[in-house]
Computed example of a mutant assay.
Amino acid sequence: MEAEVFHKALQMMDVLCLILEEGVVRFANGKAQTTLGKKLLGQQIKEDLLQSQTPFVKWKSFNIGRYTVCLGTDVSHEKSEIQRLKGELEKRREFFATATHEIRSAANSILGYLALFVDEEIKLAHREELAQKAYSAALRLSALVNDLLDYVRIEEGAKELEDEPLKINSMLHEIVEDLKGYAFRKDVELQVPSVGENLTILGEKKAFCRVMRNILDNAIKFTSVKEKGEKRVTVSFSEEEQGISITVHDTGIGIEPEKLPYLFEPFISYSPGGTGLGLALSKKLIELMQGEIAIRSAGTDKGTTVELWFRRAGVEK
């Protein structure tokens, strides 16, 4: 009776249990058979090799007479968690290494322009040009640092956005007015129709404007470098019961299909000289506003479409 109870208890244990007699398996509970295989009974197992042969199990053993009892705990989930944490640490290391490189490159540009500026052999007219270039490089560095800080704050859950009604028409009008000159210089037609004055979404104005400015700026930039065909960026709207969709379509250079899944990763850029932070940060900001973003492209020279969705104000969940 006692042996039967003991046997049942071993079967119910949430650990692997092997009982060896002179290295031969005489008993294996259900957990052991499920983890190591059902053909254990009668097999020869060397106790000292048990750990190396089953690295996902942590073993402890003790002797009872001529028998050796081996109890094992499945630690595969712990190893998986360790691997996940190592992966996260490696991603952070790569992130900060790349960020440091980008900051150093921007700072070196400024130092280079200033070094030429103080050179006594440089003429005054050239100094004015160098000062302007140094100023532009400083602005890019400032924008990069701000993007980095915001991205890290969002990743760490330290950045919150206000949730307020925002009228799309007035915000887009302000953004388009700022970008009209840029589009004109790049020979790109920018088409943004007016929308109803009362078309309102929920979010934070600063975050919304930052996202839209980045998306439109990218669309103009990657359309302007197209060698042939029309150069146009079009914005359209779609009203839904729960939200409002904004679609930005350009006729630019497009994106290779294999690159689409990685566009929202930081420092993954599909343009020379780009940091790849703009889209990554835009996605984070949209998610904080409980919105969505998706990018589609049929391939090289076939344009790009960015679809954004925002919650509609005045709609109860």
Rank of each mutant, 00 (worst) to 15 (best):
D147E: 15
F27A: 02
A28Y: 03
N63S: 15
H126I: 11
V235T: 00
D178N: 12
Q290P: 03
C70V: 09
L279I: 03
L281F: 02
G72R: 02
T73V: 12
F117G: 02
F56T: 11
Q43K: 15
T54C: 10
S76Q: 08
L116E: 10
I295C: 05
C70W: 00
E316Y: 10
V235C: 03
L124G: 03
L130R: 05
V24R: 14
D147V: 04
M12A: 12
R140N: 15
M1W: 12
R93S: 10
V306A: 06
M289W: 06
L71Q: 11
R93G: 05
D178E: 14
R92A: 12
G157M: 01
E227G: 01
P266D: 10
Y262M: 11
E227W: 02
E204A: 11
A207E: 06
L166V: 10
E128L: 14
A99I: 08
I19G: 00
A99M: 06
T275Q: 05
L111D: 10
I215K: 04
N108C: 04
K79G: 09
N146S: 15
R312T: 07
S194N: 13
E2D: 14
F117A: 12
I168K: 06
R296L: 13
R93P: 01
G157S: 02
V69A: 03
F310L: 05
K39D: 15
E230S: 15
V75E: 06
L260A: 08
I19Y: 00
E156P: 02
R311Y: 07
Y182C: 09
F267R: 12
P165N: 07
N218S: 13
E2C: 09
G72H: 01
E21G: 09
I168D: 06
I175F: 04
K228R: 08
E22Q: 15
K206N: 14
L20D: 10
L179I: 02
K206M: 13
Q242M: 13
M13L: 14
E81N: 08
K58C: 11
G299K: 09
